[in-house]
Simulated scan of single mutants.
Amino acid sequence: MSGTGFDYAITRTLDAPVGKVWDAWTNADNYGKWASAEDVALDVRPGGAWSSVMVIPGGARVPLTGAYTEVVPNERLVMGMDVPGRDEPVLMTLALAADGDRTKVTLSQTFDSAEERDQSEQGSNMLLDGLTAFLGAA
Rank of each mutant, 00 (worst) to 15 (best):
R76V: 09
I10G: 06
S51L: 05
E75M: 03
N27S: 10
W50G: 00
D99K: 14
Q109S: 14
D39V: 09
V18L: 04
I10Y: 07
V71T: 06
R61W: 10
A95Y: 11
D101P: 14
R102Y: 03
A60F: 12
L127W: 12
N30Q: 15
V21R: 00
D82M: 10
D39P: 01
A95W: 08
V105S: 01
V44C: 06
V53F: 02
G100W: 09
A9W: 03
G32K: 03
V40C: 08
F111L: 12
R117P: 04
L96Q: 01
N74R: 10
G32D: 04
G48Q: 03
S51D: 06
M79G: 11
R86G: 02
A138P: 07
G59K: 06
A9S: 09
V55K: 11
S2A: 13
W25V: 01
S113G: 10
T26P: 07
D43W: 06
G58I: 01
L42N: 00
D29F: 05
A60M: 14
M79W: 09
L42Y: 02
D118L: 07
Q122W: 11
R117T: 05
T26D: 04
R86K: 13
M1Y: 09
R117V: 06
A35Y: 02
G85M: 04
M92F: 15
A37C: 12
R102I: 06
G32F: 01
D39R: 12
D129P: 00
G32T: 04
L64F: 11
G85L: 05
M92C: 11
P57W: 01
R102W: 08
G3D: 14
W34A: 01
T106I: 08
A24G: 05
P73S: 07
D29A: 14
V40G: 02
A133W: 12
T106R: 09
K20Q: 15
E38Y: 03
G80P: 00
E115R: 13
P57V: 00
L128M: 08
V21P: 00
G19M: 05
A67I: 05
G5F: 06
W34P: 04
M92K: 07
E70V: 13
T65S: 12
E75R: 13
L42K: 02
V53R: 03
E116T: 08
T110A: 13
P57I: 00
T65I: 09
D29I: 10
S124M: 13
W22S: 02
L42Q: 04
G3M: 12
T103L: 00
A37I: 04
E70W: 03
P17C: 00
V62R: 12
D99Y: 05
S36G: 11
S124E: 11
V21A: 01
G5W: 01
M126V: 15
M126G: 07
S113Q: 12
V18P: 03
L107V: 10
A37D: 04
A49N: 07
S2D: 15
L96Y: 00
S2Y: 11
K104Y: 05
Y68D: 04
P89T: 00
L64P: 05
Q122V: 13
A67H: 07
R117N: 06
A97H: 08
E121T: 03
L91A: 11
K33Y: 07
A98H: 06
P73A: 08
T69H: 09
D7Q: 13
N125I: 13
V72T: 14
Q122K: 15
G58E: 03
M92S: 14
G19C: 04
